[in-house]
Structures are given as structure tokens and as C-alpha cells.
Nucleic acid binder design. Sequence first.
DNA 1: TTCAGGTGTATTTTT
DNA 2: TACACCTGAA
Length: 639
Amino acid sequence: MSASHISPLLADLNPIQTQAVLATDGPVLVLAGAGSGKTKVLTHRVAYLIQEKKVPADSILVVTFTNKAAGEMTNRIKKLLNQLPAATYQLPVMGTFHSICARILRRDGVNIGLTPGFAIYDETDAVEAIKQAMEKLVLTDKKMSPSAVKHTISSAKNEMVSSLEYPRFARGYFQETVAKIYLEYQKILETNQALDFDDLLLLTVKLFQHSPQTLAYYQIKFKYILIDEYQDTNAVQYALTKLLSAQHKNICVVGDASQAIYGFRGADFRNIVNFQADYPNTRVFNLEQNYRSTQIILDAARAVISKNTSHPVLSLWTDNLVGQKIKITEARNEKEEAEIVISEIKKSSELRIKNSELKLLTPNSDIRTLNSYAVLYRTNAQSRALEEAFLKNSLPYILVGGIRFYERREIKDVLAYLRLVQNPKDSVALKRAEKLGKGRLNKFFEVSVTIDKSTTLDTLDLILQKTDYLDTLEDGTDQGKYRIENVKELRSVAEQFPNLTEFLENVALVEHIGAESDQNSDKVTLTTLHQAKGLEWSVVFMVGMEEGLFPHSRSFLNPAELEEERRLCYVGITRAKERLYLTHTRQRLFFGTRSNNLVSRFISDIPQELVQSQMNYINPDQFLDDVSIQKDEDDWLNL
DNA sequence: TTCAGGTGTATTTTT
DNA sequence: TACACCTGAA
């Protein structure tokens, strides 16, 4: 590459983004603020390595937080490479930590005694295995919930504490009992030839520790490693990163401590905070120019997040307009809150219709389709009141979240049969199949022995036909019809993966988007704050801005958790491009009881000059007569 | 095999 | 309040 040659890949990058792309070798930390073009830097960096540095694509490893993110990045890298002269079509190795570890273990896990055809247990399967372990130990103590036990074991695995080591750390009755269950649980997984999600990571570390040749193979293979959302990595993922990058040390991590919102499941943002200390000679790039939001929105976000003290906060700035003030509204209850949201949306939609009728539309005028609105909430339970109001007003919406496709009863049932084809000893699958009827199970076993090397789809169809499973779903209700539709949807996935092992792995590791969620249609998005991460809308409503709900009461006793709530609020605010609404209620119906909540401290943290509201909420004392959450309030005041 | 009725539980969630 | 889950009886 001559000095005069400027790669077209750098053409539309700002100076810091350019530097982050050009710093190909050695440890690199990219601190990417919300809306600062993080994915752009990652994709351009990969394309640059391939195109300009002539790095073979398969020696680049890109780790993402979700499979969806991996897919999006793949598309963008493809596009970039296709635009270039002498287009290269080979793509880097991309995926989540879990999917990459699964691939490694299928290939090399035999070195630590793993069967290549191992099953992957999802949360439900794992909890079922825990139940079986507890039954075996005759733990009739109903006070221990299997999912709490699962969570404790999962935390231990995240800290790389094996079932053999755990008893040493266990303190008190609960943990000591968990220690016994943990041992039994691992035995069950072993006999079932199954790994849970945590095992995928943990056993890969174990494989690398026990088989230096295997480790060396991957260390040499992956010359360049890029990790997205590094603030959301846990201890095992940290260890994997360290092991894999030890040879070439070309490690680039991207993230933002202010957007760390998964501490509750073991993520530790200190991994990103301490990166420089961990990797000597790290070059740091702060992406602080925001391309998404108005200045007012960024100022509000900053006011909220700057109260956190346990991590650094980036100073976002923008060339965008100052924008409109943030609108804060109080509703009497959750129904009125939903109506307020809807009336605001309708106001601008009506404006849109009127303008288009009068042909007043100019390019870039205030045209907003429904998919430029989102309503964000802290807990899923809040979606009900919103949904009811949207239905009542015939305003189209799409609810993101809820029960996932592969978690649905009918899907898990069918998958249980398929898992038994692969491993008839799988006790979790067996128990599920038993629940569907002994007769049905016997019929299944009659045909399952004859299944040899047929495709996933043929196997699935044969099972459905022999067991008459679909009959159990056919009950004349809409729900029954819907369930049958879902099984059909599963058939279409089966068609894509003729190999049963590959099919089951995909099912376990990749979230499937059901047929009903047509994402291109014009609808308002309703979703949790967590699921909004990484997305953006022109207009964002954050509802339920109340003490106890957001920040959630469970975080009151723990300053670290309260900081996580604050980061979640920061994430929510920075989703908005143009307009932000915050709403709260005086009284909310919650699990059958009415509670009077104080206005969220996050609202009080936003300076008045950024806000347009009918009331002054700075002094929450006016609500102190409402006693229902007085106790909680005392808790947080004492922090 | 099915279904009625009792019981427990309700923060966020990808893999 | 509402619903998922389990149990036991028909």
C-alpha cells in the first residue's frame, strides 16, 4: 500500500473512527458511546484487515453479544467487501462466545472426553435437570426453588468454580445444599451427554488448560480478535479472551461501561474498565461524537449517568440540533399513562395525515411513521396496560419479548422427541416425552429405532405422524391453531438444517423469530429497556418512571445494583433521536394491589432547563403522605 | 389421558 | 390480580 493510497474504507469515518480502524495491531480499546458509530468501526476494521492488510478472513475472530448482532455485522461486512474492487467473499469467524465455543468443543472436545454429539440444554432443560437432581437427593424441602438453585450454580460456573470445588466455598444451609445438588446435576448432565450454556464456555477454558496443543492451534489461527459489548462479558469470557489473544495480542475490544446492564447475570463491567491495566501498551480510542440524538437528549442522559461513580463516563457531543425539550407527564394510573402515550403518538400521526392531504410535506419535514415510536418499560408486566390501550385505540403495535419461540410448550415437546432420537438416554427429554403420554412415547420408540440417516425434516414428520402429536394441540381454540402454526414454523427451520445435530445446536443457541413478527410493518414498538439496547427510534416514551419500579425496588439495598438501574436509564434515554417523553403515575395497580409511587429519582436528576412539564417534581416530599412504599423509601434514603 | 382445582410467584435475559 | 405449574382424581 503506497502512502498516497487512501482506502475507500476510511472515506466516511471521522478522525477518531479512522484511527481506531487503522490501529490494527496490538491491544486496542474502543470506548464507544451510545450512537457513536460503534458497529461502523467494527465492520470497517474487519473489512480493512481483509482488504488492505490482506489478512485471511478465517484468521479473524469476531465475537458479538447476540447471534442477531453477528448476523447484522456479517451483512454489513459483506456489503463493504462487495463495494470494493477485487471483492473478497470470504468472511471472518463470527458468532457469540457460546456458538464459537460450541464449535470448538464439537471439534476438539474429545480431548477432554466430550462426545462430539453432545446436547445443549437451555434454561428450561437445565432447571428440569436440577429438579431431577433434587429428587434423586430426596430434597423434599419445598423451600428451595430449582431455578434459584440453577441461578446459584450458574453464578458459580461464571466464576469458574466447578462442582468439585464449590463445596469449599459453600457457606450456610442454602449453599451447602446447592453444593450437593451441583455435584448431582453435573452427573446428570454427563449421563445425558448434555452441556448447559455455562458449560460451553467453562469446558472450553478447561479444554484449553488441559490440551496445550488445542489452545496453541486456536491461538495461532486467530491472528486478530474483535470483541463487541465487552462491558457485558463475564469472568469465563474474560478468561477465554485472555487465552485466545495471548499469542498475537491483536485484540480489539469495543464497549461502554455506561451501558453495562447485565450484571445480574454475571457480566462484570470491570473487564472493560481494567482492560488497559490488563493488556500493556493498549491504545485507547474514545468515540464521543454522537450521530443519533439531539443535544437536549444527550444532556439529560449525561445528567443521569454522571451520578455513577464506579466507572468512567464518556462525554458525548453532537453536531445535531439542540432539539425539543423532554416532556415529563404525570398520569393518575397506568391506564391513563397508556392513553397519554397514545394521544401523543396520534397527535403526530394526525399531523402527518393532515400534512400529506394538504400536500404540505416537504422533504425532511416531520414525517413519522409508527415504527419511529417506541414505548420502553422496566418490567414485562407493564406491557399489559399498554397493549390493552393500543388495542382499544386500534393503534398497531409490536410487542418485543415475552415467551421466546423455542421456549414455547409445543416446540419444546417436539424437540424432546428429536433429542431422544439423538440420545435415547437424555433423561430431561425423556421426562418431557413421558408427560405427553406413555402410548405416544412407545409409538415414538417403535419408529425411532428405524430412523437412521434421514434428514431432520423427514424425522420430524415421521414422529409427528406416528405420535399424532398435533392432535393434542387441536382443541378448537385459537391458541391451539397458533400452536400448530408454530410447529409448522419449526418444520421450516428443520428444512434449513438437514443434519439433526446441527439443527438442535441452532435451536439451542439461536433465537428464532416467529412468523407473526413482521418487522417491516408500520407499528409502534413496545419493549423492555433491556431489549431496547442497541436500537434507536425518533420518539421514545419511557413509562413507569417511579421509585420502586424504575429504579426497581430490588436494587434499593445495593448501591451497585442501583448504578445498574441508572445505566439502564441512560441506555433508555440514548435510544431517542428527536423526542423523549418520560411518564409516571400517581397510583399503579401492581399484582392486585394499588401502590402510590414517588417520582423516579432519575427524573429529578434531569435539569429543569431540559424539561417541559406541568409540575415541578424536584421535591418528592409532596408524596410522603402516601405510605404504601414508605418502607422502601427509608431504605434508599439510608444508602 | 385429561382436566379441574390448588399452589406459588411475579425484574431485567442471551446463550 | 393472573397465570404457569403441579397433583390427583375421574
